[in-house]
Design a protein around this nucleic acid. Structure first.
Length: 874
RNA sequence: GCCGGAGUGGUGGAAUUGGUAGACGCGCCGGACUCAAAAUCCGGUCAGGAUGACACCUGGUGAGGGUUCGAGUCCCUCCUCCGGUACCA
């Protein structure tokens, strides 16, 4: 008989909800330490929870419960990032209002989360689509607006006609929309932009203080893309205009033999010589048709056209030709470069293609055989720079340029301003109105918030046939009463775009602190107590965007005095992806012959059919899996991402029905380190399920469903204390390090031992249940109450580790000869730290004396408490 | 190409600051209970050698070198896989 997890889990979930066990009171004893542990809140999709969700959520739940048991005030909330495309897409298809779909999905998600027994304070739930919430999203936008950080610009955007919307760079993969895989074109459009670039330097430097995965910090650094160099002006021959370039290698200025402008560069039209106009026009035409995909695909082959104009190299005074080429991007630097083929591989390639002059101005090493030389060396053919290394030459040329007023030192960032509008219905409306006569915009008054979305029946974006058609967001078809506002007899128009989904998720962690506050964003004193978030757990896919945008808004709010910390998230952890069960595949050729996995030509995999094998069909030979009995046929073995089409999706609901929520929680933590990618195993679930059953039988007699007779109020033996405290120490340390898998292993070891005990002291079981509680809250609550302990286990104290109990009388000392283990000896603890004693005793041990024999002892090493190593001359 | 991470039994994974490699789980093998099965419990399980049985010996953490009394752990070179990124001037 298995333990009745289903009844137990329902019972305690009901108890927790009714008693608001996990409520974090508004007014609390702030002299106690706090811990704010947060999950990245989910988008409540129609598909419901998948096994990836409980992974991170269980980890944070363990920490939250652990901290409560250790006397912390804990803030552990949950909410919904509920604006976004799928609900709108669904609305378009079915006519159901997104608000309805969203509420339905939220309630399904919440039910599923409750079934897992997470200790969220549900009274603090946040829904980004709730006007009470997005009132403050709009309010923050107003602060950005008033601070001059929000502006409208006609910018080249990624226009997706099929979706009828503009996409951020990040939402485009290989020239197609991330959602729906539709083609995306570049075109200019009037858009709201947020000046995140103004915060580039602080977003970069403040990363250093954060306890985040190095990979994530590095990705943000790369995204911000700081580079130091110089800005240099080149006078255009026979013209008033200058071309400004950014370069990280001003020292190579003498080697700049031509210039290149991005095809979209504003000066191109002006400087194109009459004889070159048609060629330039057709080149611009052809590049504008290229999607980003084509531009990158053709990355290897360069192309360009001569404008017919020349610029003066400020160092040499020589005229150099000005070209346009799409290997220069308008969006980076100044959209123009000085080409130095001698020291730049791209420029060399281009110069070679069009027969442009190449001068080396850095002396490559003697054995150098490549084309462009990008390493360090002495400057040559560089006038007054000759003989200097790169770094000194940079300083000197910048000094020269500054004196000549032809350039200056410059720091450039790859980061660009944040394109903040979407041509969508299901998002926050902008709290701005337009005066169309004067072409100006004005903020709403804060008292006018929230600005609600208009009721509409048709949410469809006007998907355009041609890429030139003017985008028509759904809000442009709203009722006139919403679209226009009259003020002092003057009619203003509202903004028809809405905010992107990131807006709501940029600051939700703040609102959890004070979710019902109608008067301010959040109360200052509460903010001061709870911030920053001590632990933030979520997927690595948000490494750059969400986390960068949230940091940006946070810094703005910090500057405005609304928050007290420079950074929102002190410690960040990404949970690893959970893959489906490992699969074994045999590839079969068109003629029906099995093909060895290593004989398949890459890219031709579709010429073969894959047949799924069971574990019994294969065996391991060497380090490869092969078909049983046919070692020449290698089998493809790997785990795949869970997907409907592959049919390897594990549904958490099914696991809960079969094994219970405690088993699911425990298994997801036992699979391996939280950060690692790991593959699902049904057998593994059974393993932890058996463990929970053993825990149950530690106290319960299954026949009678009562407490076992040998569970008694007696003093634990020394050995029992030792095992208990060994576990207390291990589990405590492991939770602090988020090494949940090994914490569970320690509890398994304890349970295996304890099941052998004739008598089971209640006090020991009591401590054990508290240790297990954060991992498996339901079964521990039930056993707690059956053992007659009062109240809920949730508000108990974490057992204190007493090192005296795990101390042995004797200590084991390893004995080595020449570093190889040759035996061990037992010494009294009092003597284990005594080097001389250890050596003396070791040299009397038979296993050592035997081996030393007649050999000469070269060295004697004793590590106190650990080992003795005798080095002999062989 | 560049950046980040990882390679340990049949398998998921353990191994403080370098100091007993393989904890714990799964699987497998054997046993107990049972008319039988399931469930449960007990024992074994890195490979090779040796033995009546123990004791014991040898090799072993992707490959090759190095540092060290001693390396899964540190250093160098290389290979493979995963994630990110890419004409960023």
């Amino acid at each position: 008989m298995a333990y009745p997890f289903s009844t137990i889990e329902k019972k305690w979930q009901k108890f927790w909800a009714e008693n608001k066990t996990f409520k974090t009171e508004d007014h609390i004893d702030t002299s106690k330490p706090k811990f704010y542990v947060l999950d990245m809140f989910p988008y409540p999709s129609g598909a419901g929870l998948h096994v990836g969700h409980p992974e991170g959520y269980t980890a944070t739940d363990i920490v939250a419960r652990f901290k409560r048991l250790n006397g912390f005030n804990v803030l552990h909330p949950m909410g919904w990032d509920a604006f976004g495309l799928p609900a709108e897409q669904y609305a378009i298809e079915t006519g159901t209002h997104p608000a309805i779909t969203t509420q339905k999905n939220i309630s399904r998600f919440r039910d599923q989360l409750k079934m897992l027994g997470f200790s969220y304070d549900w009274d603090r739930q946040i829904d980004t689509t709730d006007p009470k919430y997005f009132k403050w999203t709009q309010w923050i936008f107003l602060q950005l607006y008033k601070k001059g950080l929000a502006y409208i610009a006609e910018v080249p955007v990624n226009w997706c006609p099929a979706l009828g919307t503009v996409l951020a760079n990040e939402e485009i993969i290989d020239g197609k929309s991330e959602r729906g895989n539709h083609p995306v074109y570049r075109r200019p459009l009037r858009q709201w932009m947020l000046k995140i670039t103004e915060y580039a330097e602080r977003l970069l430097t403040d990363l250093d203080e954060l306890d985040w995965p190095e990979s994530t910090k590095e990705m943000q650094r790369n995204w911000i893309g700081k580079s130091e160099g110089a800005e240099i002006s080149f006078q255009i021959q026979n013209s008033e205009d200058t071309i400004v370039v950014f370069t990280t290698r001003p020292d190579t200025l003498f080697g700049a033999t031509y210039m290149v402008l991005a095809p979209e560069h504003p000066l191109v039209k002006k400087i194109t010589a009459p004889g070159h106009r048609s060629e330039i026009d057709s080149y611009i035409e052809s590049t504008s048709k290229k999607s980003d995909l084509e531009r990158t695909e053709l990355a290897k082959k360069k192309s360009g056209t001569f404008t017919g104009s020349y610029a003066i190299n400020p160092a040499t005074g020589k005229a150099i030709p000005i070209w346009i080429a799409d290997y220069v991007l308008l969006s980076y630097g100044t959209g123009a470069i000085m080409a130095v083929p001698g020291q730049d591989e791209r420029d060399w390639e281009f110069a070679e293609l069009y027969n442009l002059p190449i001068i080396r101005t850095v002396q490559p090493p003697d054995n150098f055989s490549g084309k462009a030389y990008t390493g360090d060396g002495r400057a040559i053919y560089s006038g007054f720079l000759n003989g200097l290394n790169i770094s000194d030459a940079k300083d000197k040329i910048i000094e020269f340029l500054e004196n000549e007023k032809k350039g200056r030192k410059k720091i450039n960032y790859k980061l660009r301003d944040w394109l903040f509008s979407r041509q969508r219905y299901w998002g926050e409306p902008f709290p701005v109105i337009f005066d169309e006569q004067n072409n100006t915009h004005h903020p709403l008054d804060e008292t006018e918030l929230p600005l609600l979305l208009p009721e509409m029946a048709d949410f469809k974006p006007e998907s355009a046939e041609t890429m030139d058609a003017e985008p028509q967001p759904p809000l442009s078809r709203a009722e006139k009463s919403w679209k226009y506002v009259e003020r002092n007899g003057y009619v203003y128009r509202r903004e028809f775009n809405t905010m992107p989904q990131w807006a709501g998720s940029c600051w939700y962690y703040l609102r959890f602190i004070d979710p019902l506050n109608d008067l301010v964003l959040l109360d200052k004193a509460k903010e001061n107590y709870w911030m920053p978030v001590d632990l933030y757990v979520g997927g690595a896919e948000h490494s750059v965007l969400h986390l960068l945008y949230a940091r940006f808004w946070h810094k703005v709010l910090y500057d405005l005095g609304y928050v007290s910390t420079k950074e929102p998230f002190q410690k960040l952890v990404h949970q690893g992806m959970i893959l489906g069960e490992t699969e074994y595949h045999l590839y079969i050729s068109g003629s029906g012959e099995p093909i060895s996995g290593d004989e398949i030509v890459p890219g031709k995999i579709n010429d073969y059919t894959a047949r799924r094998l069971s574990e019994d069909d294969i065996e391991k030979v060497g380090d490869k899996f092969v078909l049983k009995g046919k070692p020449e046929i290698k089998v493809d073995t790997r785990a795949y991402k869970m997907s409907k089409s592959r049919g390897n999706v594990i549904n958490p609901d099914d696991i809960i029905v079969q094994y219970g929520a405690d088993s699911l929680r425990l298994y997801e933590m036992f699979m391996g380190p939280l950060k690692d990618m790991k593959s699902w195993s049904m057998r593994g679930v059974e393993g932890v399920y058996r463990f929970l059953n053993r825990v149950w039988r530690l106290a319960i007699d299954e026949e009678s469903d009562t407490i076992l007779k040998n569970v008694q109020d007696i003093q634990p033996t020394r050995e029992q204390q030792k095992q208990l405290h060994f576990m207390i120490n291990k589990v405590t340390k492991d939770i602090n390090e988020m090494a949940f898998n090994t914490a569970i292993a320690a509890m398994m070891t304890f349970t295996n031992e304890a099941n052998k005990w004739e008598n089971r002291p209640k006090s020991v079981l009591k401590s054990f249940l508290v240790l297990l509680n954060p991992f498996a809250p339901h079964i521990t609550e039930e056993l707690w109450s059956r053992l007659g302990f009062k109240s809920t286990i949730t508000n108990q104290s974490w057992p204190l580790f007493n090192p005296d109990y795990v101390k042995d009388e004797y200590q084991q000392i390893m004995l080595q000869i020449n570093g190889k283990l040759r035996g061990e000896m037992r010494v009294e603890v009092s003597q284990a730290m005594n080097r001389e004693f250890l050596l003396e005793k070791a040299l009397q041990e038979e296993t050592i004396t035997r081996r030393i024999g007649e050999y000469r002892i070269l060295k004697k090493i004793a590590v106190p408490g650990k080992l003795v190593n005798i080095v002999i001359e062989l």
